[in-house]
Every structure is written in structure tokens, then in C-alpha cells.
Design a protein around this nucleic acid. Structure first.
Length: 268
DNA sequence: ATGGTAGGACGCCTA
């Protein structure tokens, strides 16, 4: 039985509905996890998703900033909308969904970007990002014979050398500083998570999911970063059948600066 | 060394 889950930082779900529709019609993932929806829950474009066959929607939004949503063609149950750092930000929602005889727990995350200055003393946003990572250690890859856990989202950190266009030039740039990359790897390894994108694409190969809006030509300069991630508990690794990073979506009409990442599973 | 673009909400913050 195939099962697909996609993650996409959409940078305003209302503004992006045309390309979200294109994506869902062309790729038909079972579940789509969105981040940066920038939309209060009572204004979420539920009807647009229903028309496309996505009748099950779990939202944790707020006005203006942040916001996550998990959208599915099969029932999802909300488990938790967790608050981090006592900030009141909408940056997480977890749900359960059935797939291939497994009960999947699915965490959808939007980790703080952290501002420009990578100094926790001088920049409270960077301090908040590091504190958020500390709290993320509590989210672990639980599993047993008939359940598993998946964590997706915009984690706003590119942990490996080939997750950025220039490791050397990025070492003091927020998203690739050692304190962040080591912090994220600590969350992942201590939590028992497998990095599914890097199970499929070797660490020696460049892999990006985000390209700045500020480049003259994002495609030619290609100064990307892998900020979006798909992790799972170890018992799902053998069921992973593929990872697709939709680089083309960066060139769609009125694009997000992030592209969708799709993980495909083949359950027996 | 700097500035470049985009979104939400309406002058300015965030990414």
C-alpha cells in the first residue's frame, strides 16, 4: 500500500491557493503539511481544499504570522497543538493517521527563523530559536509493531555541508551556524529520528528546498538551502520508497520561497 | 560591505 506525505512552507496559504491547487492536482499526496499559513483559523480556505478531495484539515493558525496546517484525503485526528517557549506562537500541530496498517503520529513544525545576528545575547530571536530546539528534544520518534512517528516541516536549519550552496561562506549565517546545525542534529539523533531525505539523497550531493526571494535569478545563482525536512522513526526507513524535492515549484507563478518535499512509503 | 524581494496589515515587522 502506497502512502505519501508532503511538507511545504507556503508563505500565506490564502495567497498561494492557485499553486497549492496545482500541486495537489498533479501530485495527490495523501497528506500535505503546510507551514507559514499566515491565516487565522476562521479564515482558512477550507472550501478550496474540500473541492480537491482534501476533506480532513487540522489547523493551528494565528493572525499575520506563522501557522501550520495538516491537510489530508483520509481522516486525521488532532493530538496536540504544542506551545514552545511560552510564546503563544502557532508553530506545531500533531495528528494521527492510518496508513498501511500503521497508526502514524505526524508532527508538523515551523521552527523560528532566528533573525539575522547569530548571537543569542544580542538577538532575542536567535536565543528563541536555540531555546525552541532545546524544547524539541522532548519530541521523540516513538514506535512499536503497529505504530510509527513522522516529523516534517520548515526547521529553518540546513544541518549538513551540502545542505547549503557554500558551507564555508554560510558558517556565520543564521540557519547554518555550528550551534544550530549541532543543535538540530542533537534533537534528531537523541530523539531517535532518521533523516529520510538523506536516506534517499547521499550527503555528498547538494540538496536544497529553499531559495531566497532576493536573488536576481534564484535558478542561475542557485544559492539554496535545505531548510525543510522529513524525519521518521527507524521502523519506517525500510518502507521509504522515495523522496521528491519539487525544485520546479520555485519557478511557478507567484511562488513560495520554499518548495514541496514529498516522501513516499510502500507498506506491505 | 551591502542590498536585494515578499507577505500581512497599513507604517513596520518578519522572513
Amino acid at each position: 500500500m502506497p502512502f505519501t506525505v508532503a511538507t511545504w512552507n507556503i508563505n500565506s496559504v490564502r495567497l498561494r491557493m492557485p499553486i497549492v491547487q496545482r500541486f495537489l492536482e498533479e501530485y495527490r499526496p495523501d497528506v500535505l503539511c503546510l507551514q507559514e499559513t499566515k491565516c487565522p483559523d476562521d479564515q482558512f480556505p477550507i472550501a478550496g481544499f474540500r473541492k480537491l478531495g482534501y476533506n480532513h484539515i487540522a489547523i493551528h493558525g494565528q493572525k499575520g504570522y506563522h501557522g501550520v496546517a495538516t491537510i489530508a484525503r483520509r481522516p486525521v485526528e488532532i493530538v496536540e497543538k504544542r506551545e514552545f517557549c511560552k510564546m503563544g506562537d502557532s508553530r506545531h500541530i500533531s495528528t494521527t493517521v492510518e496508513a498501511g496498517g500503521h497508526r502514524l503520529l505526524l508532527h508538523n513544525f515551523y521552527v523560528p527563523a532566528g533573525g539575522d545576528e547569530p548571537d543569542p545575547e544580542a538577538n532575542w530571536k536567535f536565543r528563541h530559536k536555540l531555546n525552541f530546539l532545546e524544547e524539541m528534544h522532548a519530541v521523540r520518534a516513538e514506535y512499536d509493531g503497529h505504530s510509527a512517528t513522522i516529523l516534517v516541516g520548515d526547521l529553518n536549519i540546513a544541518p549538513l555541508e551540502n545542505d547549503v550552496w557554500s558551507h564555508k561562506q554560510m558558517l556565520k549565517i543564521v540557519s547554518h551556524t555550528p550551534v544550530e546545525t549541532e543543535g538540530l542534529e542533537s534533537v534528531r539523533c537523541n530523539g531517535g529520528w532518521a533523516d529520510l531525505m538523506r536516506k534517499h539523497v547521499p550527503a555528498e550531493q547538494k540538496l536544497y528546498t529553499w531559495w531566497s526571494y532576493r536573488a536576481r535569478d534564484w535558478n542561475i545563482s542557485d544559492r539554496g538551502r535545505r531548510l525543510d525536512h522529513v524525519w521518521s522513526s527507524e521502523n519506517l526507513v525500510e518502507s521509504l520508497s522515495g523522496i521528491e524535492v519539487l525544485r520546479d515549484a520555485r519557478g511557478w507563478d507567484r511562488p513560495s520561497d520554499h518548495v514541496p518535499v514529498i516522501a513516499r512509503f510502500a507498506f506491505e
